[in-house]
């Protein structure tokens, strides 16, 4: 664990303690279960976003991908009677294709990630709304898919399976980032692409893979969100979710300049964001102020982190100078 992660963990505990003192319902099993579910849902695609950010890129299309693939999943399973395992495979396959498209446009055609994924944001949302003619996609009345529901919205010992899925994904991605050659190369490409290329790293492949990972995790999240909301309203489903993901990744210590970040940090970032949402609800703050609270806390968090880092550097320099001056 890095120092940043520990700081974030402490912040989560402090905020939690304050909320608990004001409203003990915070630690009630129902509230914890619901919050854990949301952490799972948002954490899933925040991890993917983190990988893209580590390459020095950004993926703004996540929310629209969740809406489009959510609509398609609900329609496939609910309307056309596609067996759900096949539907899941198709959705993840579409996620791979979307990620490949982003990655290839960015590496081969040298377009900027912001532009490519901004266009993705508009295109996927537009297709979702056009395909459904603005009507809400939902499962037919009375339909039930026990296994799919168990996997997505089921709970074991009160722990929502979305949260478990996020933990599994986080564990896998932790190994990928910190203990595989690909993870090393991802950090190198994000910081100094030229150096990575001179070292014989296939930098295009690494970048494309980051976008594929992001889109695949977004497609998995799309299935979980569709099952959670049961119906998908194409114009509002998943709105701003890319920004939640970016916020979680940045709170978790990913630098938008690339090359830095940790999976534990991203997960903790997602936890803090949901804790703040929960805080707004539990402390009776008007929910219209939701975004304002979140924005203020992220700003303060990043500012504090910057100041602490500067302070540590100053202290270290002073100590080093002190040692030099001693005879």
């Amino acid at each position: 664990m890095q120092k940043k992660d520990i700081g974030l963990g402490i912040l989560i505990i402090v905020v939690g303690a304050i909320v608990y003192m004001r409203n003990p319902l915070f630690l009630s099993p129902i509230n914890l279960g619901n919050t854990a579910n949301l952490i799972g849902l948002f954490g899933l695609f925040a991890i993917g976003q983190g990988f893209v950010i580590m390459t020095g890129g950004i993926d703004l299309s996540v929310g629209s991908v969740i809406a489009l693939l959510g609509v398609l999943f609900v329609d496939m399973v609910g309307k056309f009677g596609v067996p759900w395992p096949l539907a899941v495979a198709i959705i993840i396959g579409l996620g791979v294709l979307i990620g490949l498209a982003h990655g290839i446009l960015i590496t081969r055609f040298r377009l900027q990630p912001f532009v490519v994924t901004l266009c993705g944001l508009l295109i996927y949302r537009g297709i979702a709304r056009g395909y459904t003619a603005e009507s809400t996609a939902g499962f037919p009345f009375g339909s039930s898919y026990p296994q799919l529901e168990w996997l997505t919205i089921g709970r074991s010992f009160g722990v929502p399976h979305s949260f478990v899925a996020m933990l599994i994904v986080a564990a896998v991605m932790w190994v990928v980032l910190h203990h595989t050659v690909f993870g090393r190369h991802l950090c190198a490409v994000g910081k100094n692409e030229e150096a990575a290329r001179f070292s014989g790293i296939n930098t295009r492949f690494v970048t494309v893979m980051a976008y594929v990972i992001c889109a695949v995790l977004a497609s998995i999240a799309a299935i979980y969100f569709a099952m959670f909301t049961k119906s998908v309203q194409p114009s509002s489903h998943g709105n701003f979710y890319e920004l939640y993901a970016i916020a979680a990744a940045v709170l978790g210590g990913c630098s938008l300049r690339g090359g830095e970040g940790s999976v534990i940090g991203i997960v903790l970032g997602a936890v803090l964001l949901q804790e703040l949402q929960n805080l707004v609800n539990l402390l009776g703050i008007p929910s219209s102020l939701n975004f304002a609270v979140m924005g203020a806390v992220i700003l303060l968090g990043v500012l504090a982190d910057q100041q602490f880092a500067a302070y540590r550097t100053r202290k270290n320099t002073e100590r080093a100078l002190g040692l030099l001056q001693k005879p």
Binding site: R184, C187, A195, A196, G259
Partner: peptide
């Protein structure tokens, strides 16, 4: 690469791996 350790830079692009079960780790 500035963000990596000296050792990681020495081996950049030719990282040694060892197997843990089915996966190769650095």
């Amino acid at each position: 690469c500035n963000n990596l350790s000296a050792a990681s830079n020495v081996f950049l692009g030719r990282e040694p791996t060892r197997r843990i079960g089915p996966i190769k780790v650095v």
